[in-house]
Amino acid sequence: MLKKYRRYKHPYIITSIIILSLLLFLSLAAPLLTNYNPVRNDARNRLKAPSAVHFLGTDQFGRDVFTRILYGLRASLEVGLAVVFLTVLTGGIVGVLAGFYPGLDKFIMRILDALMAFPGIIIAISLAAIWGAGKLNIILALSFAYFPKMARIVRSSVVAIKDLDYVESARAAGARDSRIIAAYILRNSASPIMVQATFNFALAILDEAALSFLGVGIMPPAPSLGAMITEARNYMVVAPWLIIAPGIMIILSVLSLNLLGDGLRDLLDPHLKNSFKK
């Protein structure tokens, strides 16, 4: 399958993979790229403009902005990955149950409909406000907000696949439900799940920034791109670097993930993939 895809050079995918790799490298190699501690203050050197000593200047506590961006990026990617894992897991299980067992379908889908009636960010803000701020609580809140959509996508895929001939053959050959689901249905549902997971990743980064911006996200002094923007609001006139740098990072990460999602959707959609063949 992969071999087949090597023949395609999708510009979105290439661009996004380059940017994502760079961001991943920056966040993972943070301790090698900077000597500063992201949470240690040096207030006597607050709001210093970018210089050779502080590549992106310092913030209101005299902390190195470049260092905080690297660690903030790491936090964002951690949240994004964890949310993707949890939404795929929970959405996958619920979606398969609804799609594969008609008896459960109506019951599960009505609950999902009710959850989807609320915008995801509202659910996330409410849960984060109830559970309190913190990385784990954000991950759980965002996962809860996103899993209904993932479950719906998985369910649609399962419903479409479960009556196909090869599934029927497997059932006739005596395969158990678990085997049919794992070997035949999920394997063939991978494409929409992957695309949705990529969008969820981008959305999680954006919503984590939004939650931190609203004060219910990652607790200070831990770095977070959203919280850095919140704190920078009061200094943006005198120290614009405080808001520009984390803003660009959020744009880059969300844009690259969205491009990847778009690219994968185009590539995996049999109706669109030929248009990118070269």
């Binding site: 240690r40 203050n41 207030a43 701020a133 607790m219 200070p220």
Partner: peptide, 18 residues
């Protein structure tokens, strides 16, 4: 935030609740 930083520098554990 600044007090947390200073107390941690001398080895005191701090739980900041905002």
């Amino acid at each position: 935030i600044a007090i947390k930083d200073q107390l941690e520098k001398i080895g005191i554990k701090v739980d900041l609740q905002l």
